[in-house]
Amino acid sequence: MGVLERVRIFKFWKMGESIKERLIEKLLFLLSLSSILIVFFIIVFMLKEGLPAFALGGEFFFGMTWHPATNQFGILILVLCTFIVGIGALVLATIIGIPTAVFLAEFSPEWLRNIIKPCVEMLVGIPSVVIGFFGLMVLVIFIRDTFGGWGESILAGWIILAIMTLPHVISISEDAIRAVPKAYKEASLALGATHLQTVTRVILPNARSGILASLILGMGNAVGETMAVLMVIGNPEIPFIPESVLEPVRVLTSTIVIEAAYMIWGSTHQHALIALGVVLFVIVALLNAITTVMIRKGMVK
């Protein structure tokens, strides 16, 4: 198509619309541009502010000691502990969440589903400080009295985080299970398979990618969760590699909260904390991106 033709088409799109219409479109465009700029600005700003810490290179990324008082900013143990806490919580959430999702999607009577589903939706948003407080008052004391140690421990972190991850795992897995075409199920049932056999042999394999996506998303949530974890894991002064689940640990998020209060403005410490935030952001963003891609792929299939 020639340039002139293009101009003509462009024109009569505009001709039919009054000035008010065009103003509204411009206004909406400006507003959406500014929200996108905010998003970009946050990312760029954090990257730039974290740069001095990233410049430490291996010392930052692979250093074993995080001790601001002696200017040591190695994040390896923090990252490791973050994953220890996150993965443990995810395992617990999987054990409880996937069967619940299967139950909701396939076996639950309607009335029971109408009770469970809102509970799951409520659980998503319960302020984390409340859950953390509960953990501190009940779980930590229970662990201390039953298993010994301080009570503030990896184990407490696992359980509290599992409660918070659970609803994400359940909702997305349930959607994935429901998305499996009815025809597959009917075909299997028609061959004389029981409902349970149909679920394990036909439905779950087909919902695989969606269920996996829910776990990765759950992981992202667990890694990024702050207050509840902070309140129950103990946060030792100098992070170390734990040897038992009853020992206290420090994770990325809790380190930021605890130390942001006394960081010195403009110090390496400040840059290092921001860099921690960026590392955290990158981990979570990666996990989210994988989830998004997997869910899309699952839908296309």
Binding site: I36, E49, G224, T226, F281, N288, A289, T292
Partner: peptide, 21 residues
């Protein structure tokens, strides 16, 4: 895609941004 990614940013990171910026 960016909007979706940002929706998942831990609030602590945004809090840190707020504090510093």
């Amino acid at each position: 895609f960016f909007v979706e990614c940002l929706a998942g940013i831990p609030s602590i990171v945004i809090g840190l941004f707020g504090l510093i910026f």
